[in-house]
């Protein structure tokens, strides 16, 4: 039984997190530079809880972040996709597609390739009108990716709800019409 879809791109497979991904999640959670803007480094037990919450969100909401695997090697390289903890009734600032890859997988266009597939899927299956990305002001690589995806800065210094209440993010985004026009 699947809790969510499997998407295939030129170089990647996107599917809901599974138990065999845990070593990948746990090792990425130890990468200080990778985790700096996405919650900070975390020990194995916290990494497991984070992965489990992604899987649980799939079951509760029908969407959540995907595990990202390389098609050529099968290797787990990160997680990305639709993210809105609490759903529409929650305090998240909107319908997000977020991304985070482990260090060794950065700089090869994987995040853009995966995020593009995830945004396509979200607009086609989740009834979203807009997509946003919550990004730390100092996270230059992610800001550059948001801009490459066609999103624009919409709101600055948005304060997230607990457990990230000490954290402010800038919100980038675009409408479904804008996305579809660019993808034609």
């Amino acid at each position: 039984m699947e809790i969510g879809p499997t998407l295939t791109t030129e170089r990647l497979i996107l599917r809901p997190p599974a138990h065999e991904d845990f070593d990948g999640f746990a090792s990425m959670a130890q990468e200080e530079d990778t985790m700096r803007f996405i919650g900070g480094v975390a020990p194995r037990d916290a990494a497991w809880r984070g992965m489990a919450a992604l899987a649980g969100a799939w079951a509760l909401l029908g969407y959540s972040m995907f595990s990202v695997l390389r098609r050529d090697t099968g290797e787990w390289i990160g997680r990305l996709g639709p993210w809105r903890p609490g759903g529409k009734e929650g305090s998240w600032p909107g319908d997000e597609v977020g991304w985070g890859l482990k260090r060794a997988a950065m700089g090869q266009g994987f995040a853009q390739e995966g995020a593009t597939a995830a945004i396509d899927w979200a607009f086609d299956h989740l009834g979203w009108d807009r997509v946003i990305h919550c990004i730390d002001k100092q996270n230059a690589p992610s800001i550059a990716l948001a801009l490459r995806l066609g999103s624009r800065l919409e709101r600055e210094n948005h304060q997230l709800a607990p457990p990230f209440e000490t954290h402010k993010v800038d919100i980038y985004g675009q409408s479904k019409a804008e996305w579809k026009a660019r993808r034609r």
């Binding site: 809880r49 992965m51 489990a52 079951a59």
Partner: peptide, 19 residues
């Protein structure tokens, strides 16, 4: 627990079943 944390707890419980 604040509401957002409680939601993550519930997602964790459900994800624990999945995994």
């Amino acid at each position: 627990r604040d509401r957002a944390s409680a939601w993550r707890d519930m997602a964790l419980f459900v994800g624990h079943w999945a995994l």
